[in-house]
Amino acid sequence: MSWQIITQSLPIFLKAFELTLWLSCVGIVCSILVGIITSLVQYFKVPILGRVLTVYVELARNTPLLIQLFFLYYAFPVIGLKMSAQVCGIIGLVFLGGAYMAEGFTGGFAGVSPSQIDDGKALGMNDLQLARYVVFPQGFALSMPALAANIIFLIKETSIFSVIAIPELTNTALDLIGMYYRSNEYLLVLVIAYAIILVPVILLLNFVERKVRYGTFGN
């Protein structure tokens, strides 16, 4: 193990670190948006679109991101759709993440207890009011654990971007190993880099989860 090798590589890793962070943030925000829209369409059982989105969710959840990326990056140009690696990466991550998020929100809505729905109905609410004032606020709070798990999952999935040569953390480490043959050093930096991103994220999400649980449901 050589410290010199490690310190020399830090500037390169820093750039990769920024890219991983950036791609994760964009991917997570877009995934949450897609997830919310999808789960709302499914909740209100919008005709046709609801079914189409159910097929989307199942396709995205039950296939590997790697194949989704290969399809976007290598197969789509054949039908005239050529996109940069990073655009493919984001689209692939959001395709996958949106489905996971939708599943999480839908699970939260389903977790709202039937007696709460009876209460809302007995107070004269129509379906829209029931959704707006009873199901969604409680459902989103209930889906927080799934949301947290999905955020962590999506950050880790950015490592698969390395297969379409996006210079994020994993790809950078592999490049360096290929060039200088110092696997121990670069792998150590790689693992630490992921820990630097994920440990605070995990702690923050735990904190938020507790806050939401107590905040919305009283102390």
């Binding site: 007696s115 209460d119 107070l123 004269g124 379906d127 709070a141 919305t216 009283g218």
Partner: peptide, 24 residues
């Protein structure tokens, strides 16, 4: 129809065994 019931439920109050207030 669900519309009729929804309007009527404002005139028919109901309280349940589960004493469920909205927790949020």
């Amino acid at each position: 129809s669900s519309k009729t019931w929804q309007a009527l439920r404002q005139k028919i109050g109901m309280v349940f065994q589960s004493y469920d207030l909205f927790p949020n």
